[in-house]
Simulated assay, not measured.
Amino acid sequence: MQLFIKNMNEERAVEALNWRYAKPYDLYNNELTNDSLKEFLGGSYHAIVDQNNELFGYFCIGESAQVPPGRKFGAYNEDMLDVGFGMKPSFTGQGYGFEFCSFIFSYIQENNNDSPHRLTVATFNKRAIHLYEKLGFVKRTEFDTDTTSFITMVKEA
């Protein structure tokens, strides 16, 4: 499989915002609204396409990658590069995660500063946590929202 970074455009954003994940991963479902579309097109999101130019996933950096309630718990007080991403639901659980994430972090490493990287993940998402640990991330902070517990994971650049 070959992956490529493309600009996030409206067509790709609408597709990604309409993805639906099975329970319990439905926490990661987005809603297609004017605000969510504006965020996806605001410059912090990047599309990832395969060799057929089909949308495979996306990633975002900065504040868009943070879970807002975590801010009041100090989860984002340290100066780090927050990274978030989503993979097309039909590709999840198929063994693509390591290649997908490695591709994203290689790109970020080549195109951004040397700040440590931070991810935020729901604590129930054991397969993602295991993957992030394989990629060298370690657990840092835990916080709860009204419905879900999250952890931040950090990797020194």
Rank of each mutant, 00 (worst) to 15 (best):
L3V: 04
F4M: 13
F4W: 09
E11W: 13
R12K: 13
A13S: 03
L17N: 04
N18D: 15
W19Q: 14
Y21W: 11
A22V: 05
K23Y: 11
Y28E: 07
N30A: 10
N34F: 14
D35Q: 10
S36G: 05
S36R: 06
L37W: 05
K38N: 05
F40L: 04
G43H: 08
I48C: 04
N52T: 10
L55H: 10
F59P: 12
E63M: 14
E63T: 11
S64H: 05
A65C: 04
P68C: 00
P69Y: 00
K72G: 03
A75P: 13
N77E: 09
E78N: 08
M80T: 10
M80G: 11
L81G: 00
V83S: 04
K88Q: 13
P89V: 05
G93A: 10
Y96A: 05
Y96I: 15
G97H: 00
G97T: 00
F98W: 15
F100R: 02
F103S: 00
I104G: 01
S106F: 12
E110N: 12
E110K: 08
N111Q: 10
N112I: 06
N113S: 15
N113I: 13
P116W: 12
H117M: 11
H117S: 05
N125E: 05
N125S: 07
R127F: 13
R127Y: 15
A128E: 13
H130P: 15
Y132F: 01
K134L: 07
K134N: 15
L135W: 14
R140T: 15
F143C: 02
T145N: 03
D146I: 14
T147C: 06
T147V: 12
T148I: 11
S149Q: 13
S149V: 01
T152G: 02
M153K: 05
K155Y: 08
A157R: 13
